[in-house]
Design a protein around this nucleic acid. Structure first.
Lengths: 115, 115
DNA sequence: TTATTATTTAACCAAAAGGTAATTTAACCT
DNA sequence: AGGTTAAATTACCTTTTGGTTAAATAATAA
């Protein structure tokens, strides 16, 4: 029961149904019924997945008549990216890639230098 | 019980103890006892965490006398990074950042264009 | 061979995760 | 008011997770 934000984010992402929901939401807002449609799963199961995503701050809910549209909130993914930076140099030890990386930092690449 | 690699990786990362172990391993190989030292937890618990990390391919084990040194294997994190790219444009909608991102792709930044 | 050190395995437990069916709530439409 | 549609809640079940203690295994050292 880790309460830290990164753990909550990672465990929200550790499920293919939830990642598929996020992928769908990159196309725009959707209702719960729409989101549930591709899955062989009951609505309460989807509602639960949405709760997990909402708790992680990965989605936000709106209100329109009897619908509660869901939209993507990618901000927590920025933190994941920041965490990842500490390991980037271990992905591939080859020096030319490391060189690319160092150059990217100097050029002020939006992400390469974050940590 | 998701068997897909990304889910296995994300759930391995969804625990602060395991992330701390990975962070320690960026400094170099370590024995199980060394890894366990900072935590108020028994050895079997650490062994279990290591199993989770190993199953995700995030660490590999060696053999040296009665020690089984653990070392970082960051390759699965590259996949995480690849997955993240699909969401990068949502982290911050401001157009100047989007512009940075598009430029980074053109410059052949080692990561900006992967997906 | 016996003892010591490092680590894993086994058996167990409580809590959390992921699902279900059935019921309830909320808002719309006659 | 009554009916329909959208979604959430409740109660329940099974499996997984994260931890424990106690016992077993592996390699070194005396």
């Amino acid at each position: 029961m880790p309460a830290d934000r990164l753990s909550v984010t990672f465990s929200a992402l550790a499920d293919p149904t939830r990642r598929a929901i996020l992928a769908r939401l990159t196309l725009g807002e959707a209702s719960v019924t729409e989101l549930a449609e591709p899955f062989d799963m009951t609505m309460p199961a989807i509602t639960k997945h949405l709760k997990v995503l909402e708790r992680a701050g990965l989605v936000a809910r709106g209100r329109a008549a009897q619908w509660r549209p869901v939209r993507l909130e990618a901000e927590p993914l920025r933190e994941v990216s920041g965490w990842l930076q500490n390991y980037r140099r271990f992905w591939d030890e080859s020096l030319d890639r490391l060189d690319d990386y160092l150059q990217a930092i100097q050029k002020g690449d939006p992400d390469a230098g974050r940590h």
